[in-house]
Nucleic acid binder design. Sequence first.
DNA 1: ACACCGTACTATACACTGTACGTTAGGAGC
DNA 2: GCTCCTAACGTACAGTGTATAGTACGGTGT
Lengths: 216, 216
Amino acid sequence: MARTPRNTLSADLIVRTALELMEAKGTDAFSLRGVAGELGVGPMALYTYFRNKDDLYDAVRDHLMALLPAVPSDAPWPDQVRTVCRSLRLLMLQHPCLAQLLAGRPLSGHETARVAEGLLGVLRAAGFDAETAARTHTTLFTYVLGSTSWEIQMAAERRDPEAWRRLRTSMESLSARDFPSVVELAPELARTTGGDEQFDYGLNLLLAGLQVRTPS
Amino acid sequence: MARTPRNTLSADLIVRTALELMEAKGTDAFSLRGVAGELGVGPMALYTYFRNKDDLYDAVRDHLMALLPAVPSDAPWPDQVRTVCRSLRLLMLQHPCLAQLLAGRPLSGHETARVAEGLLGVLRAAGFDAETAARTHTTLFTYVLGSTSWEIQMAAERRDPEAWRRLRTSMESLSARDFPSVVELAPELARTTGGDEQFDYGLNLLLAGLQVRTPS
DNA sequence: ACACCGTACTATACACTGTACGTTAGGAGC
DNA sequence: GCTCCTAACGTACAGTGTATAGTACGGTGT
């Protein structure tokens, strides 16, 4: 029987091809059978390296997290925070599947911890007490996650002409009497959704609020 | 042939039983065949009322959005904003499936527009220009979405003893040398994740940053 | 009263999914 | 050369969403 030679697989190889498939065909179209086929291997071969699909998801997430650069050490802390948040957003934009990988699963894995360490270290060094540092970390993280996921979602919607058309007509069917602000600001909302400016706007709000309570 | 009498179904009835199933068995375990079975009807019967599964998702989302209370009109605008954000979070906590329904699909539907209208109206009335109002709306919305989704996700994780145990041991396996801040703040992070206080902390940061640039 | 037609629902089928189970063959160590 | 371990196999199952075609019922026009 034409059996593939042994030890051609490895956890890392599986993770890399899984990532390729997710980015090529979209996170939803990803399947274990797909990556197994790509590797010229039966679906069950993957279970030697991963306990189940979620386990593979976690591995891919950690693989992507490893790409995040380290925090620059020679800058005022607000700039450091900005850099961390921006690079996480950038990574999510470059790998849209990361949004779903981060949203649907808890955080675990060394690379994920490394990212948390960077941000927490900056906040502690800035002089925030334990509780404030923890709360700020969670706030910043969820802001980046939420706003970037939304941005990716909207961008995907815009690329699908059918969905985009339906969204437009749904918007235009709104009565200007019942929804004056939405109708008035619809162009503005469409124009400002996504993009560096929108992201930085919210990030700056958070940082401005944070600097008010800066420990001396 | 024992055929169910006609017109026993309706879009609204389907939406309500779909919602029931989502909340009873979890959003992931939800299936068209499940709700069809619950209604004593073949799976394809649903396609008379909804074009596909996503269409049904949208309808459920709008159904839930209708439960949001109106914005109180007699309060300073920061309090109004706080109220809107808090009630959206509360609704998401009461109906955990809403998080996934909001994250994965674009916004459309009258009830969803109503919510946007409330927040945008408050911001316009407070004197913000069009661009700032639009940007602020997006920022607040994505913050609420991101932080509450995260909260729900973590709460679900905590209820699954197996996943929770693995998360703990994964945390404890981190070297205090490589991840000093994470290790030090782990209890603080676990303690402060979720809850009204954490949500309000981030919301207050945003509002504080916003009030700095309040138009006199 | 009766034929008709649109529509609400059914039946069947297809191409998938993740994964449990039992089997087999390749390489390492004796 | 033999044994053992395990990586990869094949098969099977219980699901999924939905395309397609068929069927019976309710309301309408004559």
